[in-house]
Structure formats: C-alpha cells, structure tokens
Nucleic acid binder design. Structure first.
Lengths: 255, 255
DNA sequence: ATTGCTTTCTTTCAATGGCCAGCATGCTTT
DNA sequence: AAAGCATGCTGGCCATTGAAAGAAAGCAAT
C-alpha cells in the first residue's frame, strides 16, 4: 500500500468514525506506530485532524478554528459596530443570505428592526434567533452540522444555497490579504462561502479589523467577488486605495 | 476507550443527570476513582462541572449559553419520562430521524449519553442542542422556518428527508384515535411527518398521554405505519388490545 | 461540643505505554 | 552517485494511570 493511500484512508476513517487510535491503525496497515503518528502529524498540519494522547479526532474546526463558544464572545464590541453599519446597507423588503459566522449573528440581531425580510442562512443559531420574526421568511440550508459549531456545511448545504438567488450576501472570513484575497481555515466553510457569494447580487464582507493582513489555509475568492467591505475601524490608506482600484466600497465604524 | 472520550462522556452524563458520583463512574469505566477525580478536576477548570464531596454537579452556567430562548414547555415531567423509555429503544451506532416536536427534543437530551449516533432532524432546536456532540453526525433538513417555531417545513424539508433512509424515526402528533389514526393540526407538519415515517425502518411514536382519544385536523397515517408507541402512562386495556392486534409495541413509563 | 469511625480527597511515587528525536536502512528520483 | 523520502528502530521523555498513605470531611453517638 502506498503511503499516500494510507494517509487518505486514515483521513476518510477519521471523517467517518470521528476518532482513530494509533495502535489500531498500526496493526491495521501493518506499519509501526511511528509511521501512523507521522501520518497524523501531516493530517493535523493540513487541518483535518487534531491529535490527542493515543490517537486523533476529526477536526474540521477544532484545530485551526477556535471553538465556537470562544469565538462567539471575542471582539464583541467590534462586531456590534459592524452590525450597526451593515444594517444601514440593507433596505426593507429585500432578501439576504447570511453565513454561519458569529459576525453574521450580530448583523441579524441588528436587522431585526426591519420589516419583511427574507433570510437564507446555514446557521442554526441565526434560525433560532429569528424564530420570533413571524412576518419574515426564514430559510435554512440544511446539511451536516459542523463540529463544535452551529453552521451547516457539506454538499447538501451547498446545493441548497445554489438553488437561491438573493439581493445581498453578508459573510465573513478568517483572513484577508491583498496578495491572497479572502481565506478561511477549512475547506467546508470556504466552499459554503463560495456558494453564498455566487448566489447574491451584492456581496458584503463583514469582518472585524483583526482579520486584515492575515492569511488562512483555504482561498475563498479574490476582491473582484466582493462589492462591499464593512469593518470596525479604518484599515489604513493602502487598503482604502486598494479597495478603490478594485471597485470595492469600504465602510467602517468609528476610529 | 480514549481518555478524551471518557471525559466527554462524563461531561454529557453531567448535563443529563445534573450530578455524577465518583464511585459509580469509576466502576462504569473500569478505572480507579483517582482517574475519575482527575477528569472531574479538568471539567471543573473548564467550567463544566462543580466538584462536591463524593462527585460533581453540573455547573449552572451551562444553560446560559443556549442560543435560543427556552420556550415554556407543557407536560415536562411526562416528556422526560417518555424520553427515558425511548432512550432504551435506541442502540448505539444507529441512525435516527427526529421531528420538530418538543417531545423529540427531550428524547434527544436523553440520547446524548449514547455513542456514535447519526441524527437527522427538521428541528433547529435539536440541532443547537447537539452542537457539542462532536462524535456524532448531525444533519439538518433545511427548509422554511415554521412561523413561531423551530421546525423546518415545506418542499425543501420534505425532499431532504426523502433522501435519507434511517433505522429509527421518533416523532409525535397532536392526536391519536382508534378510528382516525394519527392526526396533526396543520398540513405542513403532517407532510413532514409522513416523509419521516416513510424514511425509517422502525417508526416510534412518542406522545404524552394527553394525546390519546383526540382527533386533530389533518391525518398523518394509520396504525399500520407505526411500530412502537411510547407514552408516559398506561392508556388502558382497550388500547393495549388494539395495539396488540395492529402489531404495535406499547411502552409506558410509570403508572 | 467531643470523640471515634467511615468515606472521600489529596499527595506522592512508581509503572505503563504513548510520544519524540535522531539515526540507519531501503527505495525512488534526479 | 547523490539527494530525497518513507519507514523502522532505539533510547529518553512525558502523560496517564494506579497504588498507597495520610489528611480532611462527613456522620453517628455520646
């Protein structure tokens, strides 16, 4: 068996079983435990596994992402300001798509004052937040629940997103960089965001200022696919100029 | 069993039972009490448990971060009992489908102690409840959010349900009656339940005893489409006989 | 309150076994 | 032939666990 085959097999097993045990794998493939550990190290650095004592657990989110419970409470003030600005960009009676980011949740809370919106989202949390808006229409994408989070991912989620066409998309990412565009920490999230972007006429990137000059693992898109950027403080003159030349409108709150 | 699994399991048990006892856990996992105490120390430092003499109790802050406002649910004690019985019917490693009823939510809470389940549901509430079960697979159907509720309905939800085939379905209804079968109060819910029933091999109706002898608006199915009925008290000899002749197994808790 | 007994907790030490680093081997690539 | 990669092996390190002893907490009876 080729090394790459073994690695792929471990990766599949990990996604299926959610955990693997070093000694079992070593026996199964008839290699030493060291070899298995080296495979797991690679899978970890690629973001697919999180190693633990005695084995590894699946990690589409755990390793590279902070657990959602942590992310949810970080940069709260920034996110609240971003939400306020975003609210001004969305007219009543429009239909919008939101991703499963914690920033999007803040935006939704700010949008609740509006009348007659149609919301499509892959976030279970946004759905719950909107359960009392009886005059809106709220669609959920469905799909596989992302580990340690409240977002739906996978083929089902993406197919569902593709079947909608909306006025506005509001989404986030893990890093933005002038050379590499928008990046995210894992493939599942990145694919969902790509789908959201192509389903909307006006694409609004809502990110707090810590995301600037950061490069994460997976590319989402370039700046040609973004119409508006909303952030919490002025990213500086280079970015202003860069957005200008790329046809991106920039909004920021305060500073 | 990996150490992290044991810790996770204790955490789940703690959420369900609200308290755990050192000596019981030691026996259950076949480790010494010292090992259990060390796990509890970690859980305490992570904020999930508060240690007490002889064991630990769930830290009360656990309920605060639930993303949805807790609805006022009627017949709580009955539903808890139904959930306990239902839990005994579902083996580990199985895949199950649950509807958006509050009874199903209780069942899910009881099921959290099990290992390796695959759950498919049209309930945003169940999804949120299961967001911390990293070793499970949780699918949401997606669809239009039902007004004033946490369930997905409509063609998208139904299509999604139809694309799955599971071992068990656990669902509820508004009324059951020997002449009219299972009935529900609106078409949307009834259609979803029909789809759930036809997607599962073993169909478990979980209803509190107030639903007996009631007829609601829309028919869901007859008794030929039900394999098991779980309720909170003995519905009486006529029902026992009726279920017997229709090949329905009856379980009830207490009374 | 005090005493004595039992249970549980903490601390310490030792053992097991996974983990890591480095080196050697064999295979493939250049 | 040299370089690169995957793999296995060895020895030392570290995490996890269990065992044991003493401290502390609860409990019962005086």
């Amino acid at each position: 068996m080729l090394a790459i085959e073994r690695k792929q097999y471990i990766k599949d097993l990990l996604q299926k079983e959610k955990k693997v045990i070093v000694s079992d794998l070593a026996q199964q493939f008839d290699v030493t435990e060291e070899t298995v550990r080296r495979d797991l190290m690679k899978l970890e650095s690629e973001g697919f596994a999180r190693r633990i004592y005695g084995g590894a657990v699946a990690s589409e989110s755990e390793n590279v992402d902070l657990p959602y419970s942590v992310r949810k409470i970080s940069n709260v003030e920034q996110k609240r300001r971003i939400a306020e600005v975003s609210e001004g960009l969305i007219p009543e009676n429009s239909n919008i798509m939101l991703d499963g980011s914690s920033t999007a949740l803040f935006v939704v809370k700010a949008l609740k004052v509006k009348k007659n919106l149609t919301v499509i989202t892959n976030s279970a949390e946004i759905v719950c937040e909107l359960s009392d808006k009886v005059f809106w229409r709220v669609f959920a994408t469905g799909g596989l629940l992302k580990e340690g989070g409240y977002a739906f991912v996978g083929a089902r989620a993406i197919d569902s997103i593709k079947s909608f066409h909306v006025d506005y998309a509001i989404f986030s990412c893990k890093g933005i960089d002038r050379a590499n565009g928008l990046t995210d920490s894992n493939d599942n999230d990145a694919e969902v965001k790509k789908a959201i972007i192509s389903a909307a006429r006006t694409k609004i990137l809502a990110i707090d200022s810590t995301k600037f000059e950061r490069v994460s693992l997976v590319e989402i898109c370039g700046f040609g696919d973004v119409d508006v950027v909303v952030t919490d403080k002025n990213p500086g003159p280079e970015w202003a100029e860069f957005f200008e030349t790329n046809g991106v409108r920039l909004y920021y709150a305060g500073d």
